[in-house]
Each structure stands twice: as C-alpha cells, then as structure tokens.
Design a protein around this nucleic acid. Structure first.
Lengths: 140, 140
DNA sequence: GTCACATTGTTTGACATCAAATGATCGTGT
DNA sequence: ACACGATCATTTGATGTCAAACAATGTGAC
C-alpha cells in the first residue's frame, strides 16, 4: 500500500536528497539545517532569533544550540538589539560570509547532481506540484 | 536562494504532508512511522526485525523501542523464529490487524486531502519525478 | 504610573533517530 | 568437534527536534 501514497515518495525523495546534501556539505562541517540558517541570516541581517526560527521552520528552542555552535565557530554573531533588550540581532561574521559562499557552490553542484535526471521544465513542474501539496497545513 | 533548491521544496512538502498525516492518525494514537511498520508487517507476516528495518528505512536499533510500543499495545507479536533463535518473526495480532484497517481508511482520506489540488495525471507525474531525484543515493 | 499579560531567549524533559558496542546464536572451515 | 567470524536483537551514547516552564523585558489597560 505504501507506494500508492504520495507522502511515501516524498519521504523517500527527501531522505535521498538530504543524504546527498549532507554528504556534500560535510566537507565544510555544515549540516543542511545550519546552511539554511546562514542563508537566511545573510539575506536578512539583524533579524531576531524568533524570526529566524519562523523562517527556518524550527522551534525557537531548537535554534539556541544551533546558534551556539555557529557562534562558537565565529560564523554568526548575536548582537544586542538596540530597541529591545530581550532579543538579539543576528549577523554573519566575515568568516561566516566566506564559508557560506563556498557552501553555496557546493550546494549548486549538489542541486545539479540530484536533479540531473530532470529537464529544467520538469524541475519547475515538480516544484509547482510539491508546492500544491497539503495546502491546508502550510504555514507560510 | 532557498526557494531555488528543489530539496527545499521537498522538505516543505514533506513537513506539510507529515503534519497532516500525523494529525489524522493521532486519533488512533499512531504515528506515521508506526503505521508504516504495521503495513509492512501485514504484507510480510513472519518477517525478521532486520528485514522490517530495511523495508522501513530505519536503523534496526530504532526499531526496538517502536516494536516495544506496538507489542505493549498488543498490536504486534514478536514470535521466536523456528529456524533461528537469534531472530523474531513479526506478526500482527487480531487487534493490530483491526486497528490497521481503520488506519488505512483514515490514510485514504488524508491522501485525498493533501493531493486534492492535483489531478490523477498530475499525481502520477509528481511521483515519477520524485522517484527520479538523487538516483545515486537511493538504496532501494 | 502600576499591574497584569505578552514576548524573547534559554533551560529542561521527552522522544526519534543513527552509530557503536554487547551478548547470544549461527555457520563455516579445518 | 571446535574455533572463529558473521549475524540478530538489544543497549548505550550522541544529536536534533518539539513542548513546557522560566526569567527578563516589553506592552497595554486602567
């Protein structure tokens, strides 16, 4: 029965794609999750942890040890927000930005590798179909 | 950059589909993982834990507490294998089979709900595309 | 202004997962 | 017959995740 379920194929695809993603970024000692955090911070410098958590679709408590790790490696900085002493403004360090550039190139290679069996049209169609799944449950 | 990555859309779809799946099966106190185990055991009665782990794509050590739970609820039975005293033959109990039937109906509703925005042809095409992703990394 | 309530980051606990180590058992080679 | 490596289930440890509770801070009602 499982192969008849779309969710089953989505899960298998997700596992395969993530396995390649993880293996590719492993050289930089980055997980897919950490990479995603760096991308979001780069595009939105100064954002708060709660905003980053929402953008990355993780609980804010999950973010804490992840940011601890990125901060310990001096890739990200938690700056006291000027207007709200409860929250931190997140920015990439110079090192973080540099590492992210290399990571992005690796991710591009990964992207071509996993989707190599699909044409550009097919990839676009796949994404459109994926985005139409479970519309009721999507929080974006 | 993230929206350009197919893996990103796969992940979002996976999260949305699983959220609905989980919510639907919650009535029976079943997780997607446990449901999958029941389906595989029903289709392959007597199979060994290591075979079930391979079929469900989880580590065999992950299986142990899951089967403990199913056995505690008397949905599955670990029977001593006749030919090999190291391994167990897994079978559904009467209760397990009954619960699985109800779960399957719930999952059918879930399937229609999440894929309701796609025609039958589109669903088939989506599955074909998903199955072509990351061919190098697929273990099946 | 004060006080109740909300929000932000963090800590803690529960859980699923994988990897590695362990003990029992199997199979094979000699 | 026996010894040794392989296999099966399990235990243990590490990690990532969410949810709930907490302290500090902000906000709004009065």
């Amino acid at each position: 029965m499982l192969p008849e379920l779309i969710g089953y194929h989505v899960r298998l695809a997700q596992m395969a794609v993530f396995a390649d993603f993880e293996r590719s970024l492993g050289i930089l000692d980055l997980s897919p999750g950490l990479f995603g955090l760096l991308v979001i911070i780069e595009a939105n410098p100064g954002l708060r942890q709660i905003q980053l958590a929402a953008a990355a679709r993780v609980d804010r408590s999950t973010l804490v040890p992840a940011l601890d790790k990125l901060e310990a490696r001096e890739l990200v900085e938690r700056r006291a927000a000027p207007d709200d002493r409860r929250s931190n403004g997140l920015v990439l360090t110079r090192r973080g930005a540099g590492l992210l550039q290399r990571a992005k190139e690796i991710v591009q290679d990964h992207e071509h590798r996993i989707a190599g069996a699909l044409s550009a049209d097919e990839r676009a169609l796949l994404v459109r179909y994926l985005d139409r799944l479970a519309p009721e449950v999507r929080q974006s």
